[in-house]
C-alpha cells in the first residue's frame, strides 16, 4: 500500500489552481487548498466534495501552513506573484517538490517578460534554493483538465527539472490528472516549455481553440 502524498495547491481559487485541484481530488492524494478568494475557494471545495464524497481535500487559511503539511507544493500563481509566495513558504519548502506552472507572459500575450537566458521556473528555483523546483502543467490550459483527451488523443504534458526522483513523482501527479507526462529535460528546458505555451496561447486566440488545446508528439 502506497503512503498517501499531500499536495498543497497555492492559488487554488485561480483558474489553473482550481482546475488542478478538481482533477487531483479524484486521485489518491490529500489536497490542501489555499487561495486569496475565499468565496471561490469555498465553492471549489463544495464542488470537489459533491463530485467525489471520498475526496481528501481541505481548505487551509495560510500558504505556509498548507506547504508545511505538504509533500508536494504547486505554486499555481502568476509569475508576478511567485516572489511573494516564495518568501512565505521558503522555510517549510526545504527538500520538497515545488511545481512551477506559470508562464511569464507579457500583457498582450505576444511574448515572455523573462530574458532568453532564464525562465519562471529557474527564477523560482533561485528564490527557493533548497527546494526541488519542477516545471509542469504550464503547457496545458485550465480547460484541458476536464478534457485531457481530445479526439481520442491524450494531451502530452511536459515536465522539466534537475532531480530525477522528483521528476518521477511529478510524472505520477501529471498522469493522475489524465495527461501523458513527458520528461523534457533539466529545469532550463522550461525556457522552451514556457515559449511553447506562449505560442499555443497566441494560436488559441487566433484560431478560437477556446482554451481546449494541447501539444501532442506523434511518433512511431
Amino acid at each position: 500500500m502506497a503512503t498517501k502524498k499531500t499536495i498543497a495547491i497555492i492559488g487554488a481559487s485561480g483558474n489553473m489552481g482550481s482546475a488542478i485541484a478538481k482533477s487531483l481530488a479524484n486521485a489518491p492524494y490529500r489536497i490542501l487548498l489555499f487561495g486569496k478568494e475565499e468565496a471561490k475557494l469555498k465553492s471549489l471545495f463544495k464542488e470537489i466534495k459533491n463530485t467525489n464524497k471520498k475526496a481528501d481535500a481541505e481548505i487551509i487559511g495560510c500558504a505556509a501552513d498548507a506547504s508545511w503539511e505538504a509533500d508536494i507544493i504547486i505554486a499555481a500563481v502568476p509569475f508576478a506573484a511567485e516572489k511573494d509566495i516564495a518568501e512565505k513558504i521558503r522555510q517549510v519548502a526545504t527538500g520538497k517538490i515545488v511545481i512551477s506552472i506559470s508562464n511569464p507572459l507579457n500583457e498582450t500575450y505576444t511574448g515572455l517578460v523573462t530574458s532568453s537566458d532564464t525562465s519562471s521556473a529557474e527564477e523560482l528555483q533561485k528564490l527557493l534554493p533548497h527546494s526541488k523546483v519542477i516545471k509542469a502543467f504550464n503547457t496545458t490550459f485550465a480547460g484541458d483538465f476536464s478534457q485531457p483527451v481530445i479526439n481520442g488523443k491524450t494531451i502530452d504534458a511536459f515536465i522539466a527539472g534537475n532531480d530525477e526522483e522528483a521528476l518521477e513523482t511529478v510524472s505520477d501527479v501529471v498522469r493522475s490528472a489524465g495527461f501523458n507526462p513527458i520528461k523534457a529535460g533539466a529545469l532550463a528546458v522550461s525556457r522552451t516549455l514556457e515559449n511553447m505555451q506562449s505560442l499555443l496561447i497566441q494560436l488559441s486566440i487566433k484560431n478560437n481553440y477556446n482554451q481546449v488545446a494541447g501539444w501532442k508528439i506523434l511518433h512511431n
Binding site: A2, T3, W68, E69, Q91, T94, G95
Partner: peptide, 14 residues
Amino acid sequence: FIPKKLRKKQYLLQ
C-alpha cells in the same frame, strides 16, 4: 531537513 506536519492518524510510512 524537510519540515513536515503530520496530523493524528496520518501515516509517515505504510
